[in-house]
């Protein structure tokens, strides 16, 4: 089973990298781009076959290492 984890900055946390990406896109001829928030995508290959158990474990991984919950949110998607 695969787990896909998205880590993004919480609302209200300034994202200077997102801002810089937005400015670049505007300059490159994409004036429709308003606000940009960037984050991380992490794919995990798991030996676990039970979806509920896998989700609980990945949740633990997010809290312990993958995300810094002071500033980041995470979402988990299980595949296969």
């Amino acid at each position: 089973m695969k787990a896909r984890v998205h880590v993004t900055l919480k609302n209200g946390v300034l994202d200077p990298q997102g801002k810089a990406i937005g400015h670049s896109l505007n300059r490159l001829g994409f004036p429709e781009v308003d606000d940009v928030r960037q984050g991380k995508f992490i794919e995990l290959e798991l030996a676990e076959t039970d979806a509920a158990k896998a989700r609980a474990r990945v949740e633990e991984m997010c809290k312990k290492l993958l995300a810094n919950t002071v500033i980041e949110n995470y979402s988990i998607e299980l595949v296969g």
Binding site: V13, L14, P16, Q17, A20, N68, V70, I71
Partner: peptide, 16 residues
């Protein structure tokens, strides 16, 4: 801070 011994966190410098 990552170890939880101090509150808060250090983010990317605002001017990058």
């Amino acid at each position: 801070t990552e170890a939880g011994l101090l509150p808060g966190t250090l983010m990317r410098n605002s001017h990058l």
